[in-house]
Amino acid sequence: MSGSSFDKIYSDYSRLVYWAAYRVVAQNETAEDITQQVFERAYLNMDKLGPMADSQIKSWLYRVATNLALDHVRHQKHETLSDEPVGAEIADTEPLPEEELLKKKRMEAVRKAIEQLDETNRTIITLHYFSEMTVNEISEKTGISPGTIKSRLVRARSLLADMLKAEAAEE
């Protein structure tokens, strides 16, 4: 097993794995733990993963991440899940320049808007933008046809645009 091979896999797919886990557990710390577990397994199985095609490696990583995340949720069944929004961050104490502040506000608005989407649209947005999956990969994972995925992406973007306009109008 070559170190660079694991490094490449990690570099290419760590984000995919993290957001695949996050999509299920909705908690930063847990998603990080699961990401760690996934790549620990990848490291231990590099003799099998190394020769695989990129698409197979990606599938394997996504599957392991999702399964571990679902296992976690099952174990936490009786506990109240946190309502942590997508990419919630610790508040900055340093004052920001106005432009930066505006940008941050807009991004926060987008994050909140994503949370308000229904589960299907939220999944598609998360997989496409956060996990950086292609339309065909999302289709494979969700069982929805690529054409429908594309339409839903368009629809989800429109919904988000409307939500952002509505919020801007309220301010």
């Binding site: 694991f6 990690y10 760590s14 984000r15 993290y18 957001w19 930063n28 990080e32 990401t35 760690q36 577990q37 996934v38 790549f39 620990e40 397994r41 990848a42 490291y43 231990l44 997508v86 990419g87 961050e89 807009r106 991004m107 987008v110 994050r111 994503i114 947005i125 933008y129 956060f130 950086e132 973007r157 988000l160």
Partner: peptide, 26 residues
Amino acid sequence: LLRAVADDCSAKIDFEGIKQRAVESA
């Protein structure tokens, strides 16, 4: 906007730390 949000959120994650812990544990 979505790409920027996704990149921004991802940038805040300590992927290097996760990798280090994963390798050490393995």
